[in-house]
Design a protein around this nucleic acid. Structure first.
Lengths: 340, 340
DNA sequence: TTGTAGGCGTTATCAT
DNA sequence: ATGATAACGCCTACAA
C-alpha cells in the first residue's frame, strides 16, 4: 500500500494496478501498443491515487525539459504580452510552461548568452519574435543545439515547420489603396529602422502600391524612424517641413504614428481634416489617442498559439496555416484631403 | 579520461580532480566546509572541462526547480513587461529562469489551476503582481505547497520577507497638493475598481489630502472606473455632466486618464486650460497622448528586481528596502484653473 | 503486449 | 574535511 503521506510515484501506480512501471510509463506517454483494458485500468488507478508524473524526473531521463522559451527583443510591450497569451492558449492543460528571455540584439555576446541559456535549461523549443527572429545565426544555433524553434516573421524566413508569418507587404498595399480611394495623392511614409525585415516589407508594400497607382514617391516623402515614439515625431517634422506637403502619412508602426499625431497637434494641424495618418500594429495606443487611429491589426495571439503548437504537437500543427493575414482597422484618422 | 564527445558530468570533474563527486557537489553548492585548496582545485577542473551542472538532475534530487514564476492578472502590458525585465535583472548570470503564468482572477478554478501548476513545475518561488497579489488565499496556497513567494502591492499585505511595496497613498496626496498649489479647488476623482487594494489606497490618499486642504468631495466629484480606457471615458462623462464642474480630475490610472482626455476632446474641452488631468502609473501612453500627461511613476523594474532577489538570495535582500517610493512626473496636462 | 535491468546526473546520509 | 552508497522518479533497450 502506498504511503499516505507521500505523493504517489510511478511505482505506487504500478503496484496498485498490478503492472510494471514501464506499463504505467507507456500510459503516460500514450504509447499505442497497449491493450485498451490495461490502459483504462492504469488510468483508473492514476486518477484514484491522484498521481502526477514528476516533470523533473522526466526531464532528466529524456534530456529535455517541458519548457517553451520565448526569445524576444521587441520594443512593443503589447505585442510581447499578446504573444505570451497566445502561447499560453496553446499550452493550457498541458504539462508545458513558458519561460521568457528578453535578449539584447546589440550585445556582441547575445548568441553566447542564448547558447548558455539553452544549454542550461534544455528547453523543449523556443519561439522567436521579431526582430531577432530574422537572425539566421540564431536559428542555426537552435538547430545545432537540438532545440526546436519557430520563428515569427513578416517574410519567408524559414521553412514552414519553423515559421509563422504575417503578410505585412500586402496589408500596406491595402492601406495605400484605402488612402487613394479617399482621394489622397501625396502620401508620405515613415519607415521603420534599417535592418528590420518588417520595415523593409512595409516599405515595399508602400512602394509597390504607390507605383501601381502611378503616384510619385520623391525623397521628401520618405522619412526613417526606429519604431519608437520620438522618432515618429522627428520623422513627421521632416515630412511636414519638406516641399512634398503630404496630405496623408503612413507610419510603419503605431508608436511612430502616435509621434506623428503629436507633431501635427503641436503645429496646429488637424487630424484627419488637414492630415490623414495610418499606423501599423493596432496596439492599444491606436485606439486611445485622439482621434482614434486607423491602422493595421494582425492576429498575434493566434500566431503565437500556432507557433507553440508547431513545437509541441507538430502533427496537429502542420495541417494549419502558417501565414496569418492582417487586416485594415478603420477608425477616424483618415479623411479625404482638403482641396488646395 | 572523459569522453571527448560528451558533455562533462560531475563524475568527469571528480575523476579528473581526484576527488569524490560529493566534493564537487559541495563546490557547486558553495558548502562552507571545504578546504580552500580543494575548492580551487575543483574549480580549476570545472573551468578547464567547461562543466555545467545539469539543472534537470539537480531539480530531481532537490525536489525543486530553478525556476521563478510570475503570476499575474494585470491589464497593463507595460507594467507586466517591465516587471519581467526587473526579474531578469535579478537572475542574470544565475542558473534561474523566469516562467510566466497569466491567470484569470474571475475564474472559480483559479486557485486549483495555480495549485496544479505549482505541483507540476515545482517552482523555486513565485512573484505575484497586483491585483491577485492581494489575494491571501493564494499566498496561503504557496505556503502550504512549500513554494516561496513575494507579493507586490500598494499596502502592507504581508510581512517584509514576502512583500515589495509602493506608497500609492502618499503619492496621490502629493498629486492633490500639486493641484491645489496650482489653484484648483474643485478636484474630482476617477476611482479604480472595487476590491482592488491599489484603488482603495489611491482613493484614501485623495480623500485625506482633500480633507487636509479643507476641500469638499461631494458625490458628484466621484466616479468609479475599472482601470480600463473605456471606463475612463464613461467616468469622465459623468463627472463633466454633474453639477460639481471640476477644474481638475485625478484618475486612478493612466488608461482611465487617457479616457478622460478622450472625453474632454470629444466635448471640445481643452486640456489643460479648461480641465487639468492627472493619471497614475507613468505608462507609455501618458507620454504619448496630447498634451503629455502629468502622472505618478513608480519604479516597477527595481521593485521586481528586489522581489526576485528576496526569493533567490534572501540574505542579500533582507538588508534592502521593501518600500519603493513613487514620484510625481510633471508634464503638460496640469495648468491653473480658469477663473469663473 | 508487457516486464526486467540499467542509466540519466545530481544530492543526502552517514560514515571515516 | 571528504567519500561510498543509496536515493530521486522516470525512460530506453532489450528480453519474453
Amino acid at each position: 500500500m502506498p504511503e499516505a503521506n507521500h505523493k504517489p510515484t510511478i511505482n505506487d501506480v504500478a503496484r496498485v494496478a498490478g503492472v510494471s512501471k514501464k506499463t504505467v510509463s507507456r500510459v503516460i506517454n500514450r504509447s499505442p501498443l497497449l491493450k485498451p483494458e490495461t490502459r483504462t485500468k492504469v488510468e483508473d488507478v492514476i486518477a484514484s491515487l491522484g498521481y502526477r508524473p514528476n516533470m523533473q524526473a522526466r526531464a532528466l531521463a529524456m534530456g529535455r525539459n517541458f519548457l517553451l522559451g520565448l526569445l524576444h527583443d521587441n520594443p512593443n510591450a503589447q505585442t510581447v504580452l499578446n504573444f505570451q497569451f497566445g502561447v499560453l492558449d496553446a499550452i493550457r492543460d498541458t504539462e508545458f510552461a513558458l519561460v521568457v528571455r528578453p535578449v539584447d540584439r546589440r550585445s556582441p555576446r547575445m548568441l553566447d548568452d542564448i547558447r548558455s541559456f539553452l544549454e542550461v535549461q534544455r528547453l523543449y523549443g523556443v519561439l522567436i519574435l521579431p526582430p531577432i527572429s530574422e537572425n539566421d545565426d540564431l536559428a542555426n544555433l537552435c538547430r545545432e543545439m537540438g532545440c526546436g524553434y519557430v520563428r515569427m516573421g513578416s517574410a519567408q524566413l524559414d521553412d514552414d515547420e519553423h515559421l509563422v508569418q504575417s503578410n505585412d507587404r500586402e496589408c500596406v498595399e491595402n492601406v495605400i489603396d484605402h488612402l487613394v480611394e479617399q482621394g489622397h495623392r501625396r502620401i508620405a511614409i515613415i519607415q521603420g529602422p534599417e535592418g528590420f525585415r518588417s520595415a523593409q516589407e512595409r516599405w515595399e508594400g508602400f512602394s509597390a502600391a504607390m507605383h501601381r497607382h502611378g503616384l510619385d514617391v520623391p525623397a521628401d516623402a520618405i522619412a526613417r524612424g526606429n519604431y519608437r515614439f520620438d522618432s515618429g515625431i522627428a520623422a513627421a517634422e521632416k515630412l511636414l517641413e519638406g516641399s512634398f506637403r503630404p496630405t496623408a502619412i503612413f507610419a510603419s508602426n503605431d508608436e511612430m504614428a502616435a509621434g506623428a499625431f503629436h507633431m501635427a497637434r503641436s503645429r496646429g494641424i488637424d487630424v484627419p481634416s488637414e492630415l490623414s495618418i495610418v499606423g501599423f500594429d493596432d496596439s492599444p495606443i491606436a485606439a486611445h489617442i485622439w482621434p482614434p487611429m486607423t491602422t493595421v491589426g494582425w492576429p498575434i495571439r493566434e500566431m503565437a498559439k500556432a507557433a507553440a503548437l508547431k513545437l509541441i504537437d507538430p502533427s496537429e500543427a502542420e495541417a494549419k496555416q502558417s501565414i496569418f493575414p492582417a487586416r485594415l482597422v478603420r477608425r477616424s484618422s483618415v479623411a479625404p484631403p482638403q482641396r488646395d
